[in-house]
Amino acid sequence: MRPRPRAPAVIAALLSIPALLAVSGAVALEQGDRRSGIAFASPQTQAMQADDTANPGMLWVMDGAQLWRRPDGAAGKACQECHGDAAQSMKGVAPRYPDFDAGLGRPVDLSGRINLCRVRHQRAAPLAHEGSEMLALTAFVAFQSRGLPMAPAADARLAPFRAEGRRLFEQRMGQLDLSCANCHDDHWSARLGGSPVTQAQPNAYPLYRLEWQALGSLQRRMRNCMAGVRAEPFAYDAADYIDLELYLAARAAGLPMETPGVRP
């Protein structure tokens, strides 16, 4: 049922072992147990993700390719003018995010990095987190790493934020008093109603959910679960989400990136 990893992905996975060792001690899900969400999806959904002409997320990737070349902001610069060909410069970037930003003194995720680039270098307004342009750009950048293993940054400055992410992951929330870990660490092979619980792996974002009829971010997905346990979701771009994303990335180390993923 699971797509077989391609040879380059395996080699890249071996090369990233030191990084994995640096962060894997801090997670509750054993390396050998890790399963991408696509492994739980129906054969039809798996086929839709695997075929670029059927995968609706590719429309956002193509939009992102346009935006990459479009000059923007007071500086009148396009991403491409500094970063060049994304197929070269962005390959391997998404798998290590969230990463530390020295200016902010805290981690940023891929969309946060894009907005910092816009403000600092393009002198443009930041894009809305769940707006179509941000989704297109993050999809395009992450797509350049499709097939590469998640390789979270081993920067020691990230450790306290990752630990806070784990605390949030294991904190019981909402009227139903459930933590992320209650389902996604302890019962990931079970069914909730008719749906597989899954491991809450972040390796395919932004991804197209048939339920949303749209591409959406990992933060949008976390908001869904928080609303599900009847908790007040964090605001988009809240530090809590970045910390959770950091922990999820460490927990996913080694899984191949699938952006743009397709899920039910």
């Binding site: 904190q171 019981r172 929330m173 909402g174 009227q175 139903l176 008093d177 459930l178 933590s179 209650n182 389902c183 302890d186 019962h187 928080m226 609303a227 346990v229 009847r230 908790a231 007040e232």
Partner: peptide, 15 residues
Amino acid sequence: IMPAYGGSSPGARVA
């Protein structure tokens, strides 16, 4: 993991 339906044990950030 069973919620306390009588309401005695809500988690953090109840909506």
